[in-house]
């Protein structure tokens, strides 16, 4: 599991890779929070294109980052959700908190 981060315009784009479970979530959380604190970008895009698995630990991770971005008066978006991930988002009510887009490009275009 790893994350790749880049800043583009007003966005912090985070590419998540691999499996998001309890074991990996704590490592992602540390890295992600460091990146959020290091940048002045207020729009966080979590790109799930290369995520092969996610369980409820991922939900906790996303809700935690949602709260951080809300405190910073920022926004958080999800992109490239597979059918499996979409179902997890749906069941857990994450779509009530977080807007999602098919691609990072689409998200940037609409939200900039």
């Amino acid at each position: 599991m790893s994350i790749k981060v880049k800043t583009e315009q007003s966005f912090l784009v985070v590419n998540l890779e691999g499996e998001i479970d309890h074991h990996n979530a704590s490592k992602i959380r540390l890295e992600l929070d460091k990146k959020i604190s290091e940048t002045d970008k207020k729009k966080l895009i979590l790109n799930f294109e290369d995520v092969s698995f996610m369980d409820s630990s991922g939900i906790g991770l996303i809700i935690g980052r949602y709260k951080i971005m809300k405190n910073l008066k920022g926004e958080i978006y999800a992109t490239n959700l597979s059918k499996e991930l979409y179902r997890i988002f749906d069941i857990s009510g994450l779509f009530r908190l977080i807007k999602h887009y098919d691609t990072v490009e689409q998200c940037k275009k609409t939200e900039s």
């Binding site: 369980d55 409820s56 939900i59 906790g60």
Partner: peptide
């Protein structure tokens, strides 16, 4: 405090 979502059993059931 551990950022658990409380969705574990719901996911198992579903």
């Amino acid at each position: 405090q551990l950022e658990r979502s409380g969705m574990g059993f719901t996911i198992m059931e579903t």
